[in-house]
Design a protein around this nucleic acid. Structure first.
Lengths: 351, 351
DNA sequence: GTTAGCACTCATTCATTTGGAGTGCTAATA
DNA sequence: TATTAGCACTCCAAATGAATGAGTGCTAAC
């Protein structure tokens, strides 16, 4: 697996891939011979290409067609690309930390910008709040039979739940319950709310333990993976721009993945977990490298963003294998400043 | 415009449409001659068909092809279909009124059921709350600089907004503001909150009038059309099942409409308004009849549902012109009982 | 008024042809 | 020994054209 290419082979391979990225057509020896700066005849190129094919970097769709990069070829290209750039985009922190009231809005705008910029399908997952801390809890009696529970997490993520009760609670009890909840839950991550704490709270709540249970459920809902498929998408229809995706049977699968979103959410989750062990900021999945069967004809570039305190989300850009990796990576890099603009705008429009 | 068709012409037209709905292919005179119960030769049918074409009910895609229904032809068919059935599906009230905590969930399930049932693209708008009443307002201090405002509307629609303040408010002021808000806003629809009331409240709030303004903004946001594009979709990829849609250029437009949703939201809004003047429960828009240019190759069947107190939403089912109108209409009729099931399930899964 | 029959029109399908792009190989060249 | 020119060969894609058949419009007969 660890073969070393001669410099000339590398250059040729690079040229082939570059060219294929632009045109989407198989590229022949003559093209390279003219296009590249290493003055070689087509025949020589052909010889080298035969070698590269044997090594598995390029393939021929059919006899007497030009060559196109194999997954291995793309991998070569991408690895070289990524190492050129620095690795992390973890510092949007200062933008979003506490200031924005509606993270949702910002995320929606971000995907849209990315999608129009890159002309690829784009998806972003809202920060997962597994490690997120409870900041504020409150119960309020909406009417005699219904109590509204509001939970605010770090990053101002707000969740509500209506709790039905059989008979009204008096003011004092409400106050007591609120106190109980806040003192016990405040500052905890959802992971830290364990059974011991729960039973302790239930005990203290006395006859109102069912309400406590409901509130805890609300908190749990906040990280419930079903609840948590907060995934925003944009530009799914961009796939139509790339014939090799549009025509393939999988186009509709792709689109439908973008509609249903569960697959995407799962994928982004996986990426994020993987990311935590590897930690290289930007990942590229070429063809089958991502485990999504839907994506076997695509490449996915992912980036993890962080808003401090382990509040992390993931961005994915999905395009054909011949996607413009350079542009995509740069776009993700620029995201930070883009985000700055977006937020300025949204504040303007809030006035 | 008000021509009357002979009974025989009607029968033939009906047969043509019926047949075309099934096959999607242009239908010729011979087919009708054999298929229908009115024993006529193909030649006779041909004569009648020539007449029907002249009258604009059917068209020939090209010389020497069979005939397909024109928009006018579909209209004939649909009108006849709808008048057969009774007209309203306004009574889901008893299901959703106050009981469900997460309307969102139910709606998502409803679209999904409809989409898989009918095999058409489906869209549903969350109840518009223009006429909805404020039930409960509360401000809470989350920390020194931030106040969370929660507004609950009829139907338990909850909205939150973070309000930034320059310096902390003491408990007493909070209490006063809460009182002020609740007594003034409770039971009002958003339309009823007029300038007079606003300035009156601002006055009473004294130095904290900016906070009142923010809360009122939250209430206003609740009906802000931008905010209000609460539209759920499902089955967009069903369009691929119908060649006449999938192949047409507009397929991508359709899909992208389903992704961006704004167009759909606008459309559903229009429908709802129109519905309020006409009030016939089920509407069918054939081709250009809906003002959405994206939909000129489709038909849309819409139905308005009501949860009592003017809390209304709209369902739209989008398919090819040759969609199975009968099935769709019946499906919408059955929605009520479907909804019943859905809600039972969701209550089960809540335990 | 209805029907049979026939000539005519197109879309579609299939096989065939053609052009061209690109390869692999071989022999000549530096 | 590495490079290049040249040529035969392959195969795809687009163009061409013939065959098919569904369907019509018209006319003449019933």
């Amino acid at each position: 697996m660890e073969e070393v290419l001669s410099e000339r082979k590398e250059k040729i391979l690079y040229a082939i891939i570059q060219n294929y990225l632009e045109t989407g057509e198989p590229v022949g020896s003559r093209t390279i011979s003219k296009y590249s700066d290493l003055n070689l005849s087509s025949a020589t190129i052909r010889n080298e290409m035969a070698d590269l094919e044997e090594l598995g970097y390029i393939v021929q769709p059919h006899t007497s067609a030009g060559r196109i990069p194999s997954d291995k070829g793309y991998r070569f290209y991408v690895d070289r690309l990524i190492t050129e750039k620095d690795q992390q985009i973890t510092d949007m922190k200062e933008f979003l930390e506490q200031r924005t009231e509606k993270m949702e809005k910002v995320l929606k705008k971000v995907v849209k910008v990315l999608a129009t910029n890159t002309e690829y399908a784009t998806v972003i997952s809202a920060p997962s709040v597994v490690r997120n801390r409870v900041k504020f809890v409150q119960l309020s009696a909406v009417d005699e039979r219904q109590i509204l529970s509001v939970v605010v997490m770090d990053g101002n993520i707000v969740r509500n739940k209506m709790i039905q009760v059989d008979k009204p609670l008096d003011n004092e009890t409400m106050l007591k319950l609120n106190m109980l909840l806040n003192t016990n839950l405040n500052g905890l991550t959802v992971n830290e709310i364990n059974l011991g704490l729960i039973s302790k709270m239930r005990e203290q709540a006395g006859i109102h333990e069912d309400i406590i249970a409901s509130v805890l459920n609300t908190v749990a809902d906040t990280i419930d993976p079903n609840e948590e498929l907060e995934v925003y998408t944009s530009g799914a229809t961009n796939v139509f721009k790339y014939p090799e995706l549009a025509s393939s049977e999988s186009a509709k699968e792709l689109i439908s993945a973008f509609e249903e979103k569960e697959v995407l959410a799962d994928f982004l989750n996986d990426v994020q977990e993987e990311e935590e062990t590897k930690g290289t900021g930007i990942q590229v999945y070429i063809g089958g490298e991502s485990k999504m069967s839907t994506m076997k004809d695509c490449s996915v570039v992912t980036a993890t963003y962080e808003l401090g305190d382990g509040v992390k989300g993931t961005i994915g850009i999905i395009g054909p294998k011949r996607m413009d990796y350079k542009k995509v990576v740069e776009n993700l890099k620029n995201l930070k400043s883009e985000l700055g603009k977006v937020i300025d705008q949204s504040e303007d429009s809030n006035r």
